Simulated scan of single mutants.
Amino acid sequence: MMMTKYILALAAFVVSAAAQSITIAAPADGSTVTAGQTITVDVARANTLTPSQEVSVAIGLLNCGTSCSGIDPTQRFGQVVFAGPYTPSLHSSGPDFIDFYQNYSVTIPQNFAGSQASLNVAHFSLIGAGPFPNLETKSITLNVAASS
């Protein structure tokens, strides 16, 4: 009986952490951007009934050369282009039905031209009544063209 309670508590913990998860809503994975261009990174999360406190995000760009396959953003985050608070706003028609998001403007470094780049977001929040700390990373791959 005690083991069943433990498993249920663990499952509730995992579900509440997953409910707080962010997504990179823009740019789209596989998009082509231009070196030197300023892009908008849209960091979004769904609405949830679990109490939480958003703390911060960091956005990094990693020059992968010809391929970002196998890059782990928890091990190689890249050049930090933003680090600061994450205070998403409620939007009635957010991207992909996500209710909260915040946009950040970041510039693609000139020396990334002609390569793939891993755009990485690290998100830190406090979840639950306890609360417990939650750190997650998400990444997408961008194709970086040379500026004309």
Rank of each mutant, 00 (worst) to 15 (best):
M1C: 04
M3G: 04
M3Q: 15
T4H: 01
T4S: 10
K5A: 11
Y6D: 01
Y6T: 13
L8H: 05
A9D: 12
A9T: 10
A9K: 11
L10N: 09
L10W: 02
A11T: 15
A12Y: 08
V14H: 04
V14Y: 07
V15P: 01
S16Q: 14
A18M: 15
A19S: 15
I22W: 02
T23F: 07
I24Y: 05
A26M: 06
P27T: 12
P27A: 05
P27I: 13
A28R: 15
A28P: 05
G30V: 10
G30P: 14
S31T: 15
S31W: 01
S31Y: 03
V33T: 09
A35G: 05
Q37D: 09
I39K: 03
I39G: 01
T40L: 04
V41Q: 02
V41D: 00
V41P: 03
D42R: 15
V43E: 00
A44M: 12
A44F: 10
R45Q: 12
R45W: 04
L49V: 11
T50K: 05
T50F: 10
T50E: 06
P51W: 03
P51G: 04
S52R: 14
S52W: 09
S52Y: 12
Q53L: 13
E54W: 04
A58Q: 12
A58E: 10
I59S: 01
I59R: 01
I59T: 08
G60Y: 02
L61Q: 08
L61H: 04
L61C: 08
N63A: 14
G65F: 08
G65Q: 03
S67L: 08
S67M: 07
S67A: 12
C68Q: 06
C68H: 05
S69P: 00
G70F: 04
G70L: 10
G70M: 09
I71P: 01
I71W: 06
I71N: 14
D72V: 11
D72R: 13
D72Y: 12
P73K: 09
P73Y: 08
P73Q: 09
T74N: 15
R76H: 13
F77R: 07
F77H: 08
G78L: 07
Q79P: 00
V80R: 03
V81T: 09
V81D: 00
A83Y: 04
G84H: 05
Y86E: 02
Y86A: 07
T87C: 00
T87V: 13
S89M: 09
L90N: 05
H91T: 11
S92T: 15
S92Y: 08
S93R: 12
P95D: 00
F97R: 15
I98M: 13
F100D: 02
Y101I: 11
Y101M: 04
N103K: 13
N103A: 04
Y104D: 00
Y104H: 01
Y104Q: 02
Y104T: 11
V106C: 02
T107E: 03
I108H: 02
F112A: 02
A113G: 03
G114H: 10
S115I: 05
S115E: 01
Q116H: 08
V121T: 11
A122G: 13
H123I: 13
S125W: 00
S125F: 01
I127S: 11
I127N: 07
P131H: 04
P131G: 09
F132E: 09
F132C: 02
P133G: 09
P133C: 11
N134R: 13
L135E: 07
T137H: 13
T137M: 12
K138E: 13
S139E: 10
T141D: 05
L142N: 07
L142Y: 05
A145T: 02
A146G: 13
S147T: 08
S147R: 10
